[in-house]
Amino acid sequence: MKELFPMKQVNGFIFSLLLTVIALSVYFLDMSFSVAMTILLVTAFIQAGVQLILFMHAGESEDKSSIYTTTFYAISIALFTVFGSLLAMIWGYMF
């Protein structure tokens, strides 16, 4: 039975629950918008990293550089799209 629950996975799971709890603090505690956003950003990206590396085994095969490059491209383009659009449609939009 024990070999079915490797430490790596169990710890990863507990850690992700912990991150969720930390993220929840923005709901239950009173804090400023920027602090709350920082907490959310940090927990969400760590959470994503945990899934990617621990659970999805992104770095285990001969193709790890391709996989990491793909993810890097996707994330940078995604971020540029999100913030560029916010700039274009909200912060820098005059109407």
Binding site: A36, M37, L40, T43, A44, A48
Partner: peptide, 10 residues
């Protein structure tokens, strides 16, 4: 996780 953080919690 992103929906949870940036749609609901935010």
């Amino acid at each position: 996780i992103f929906i949870f953080s940036f749609i609901y919690l935010k």
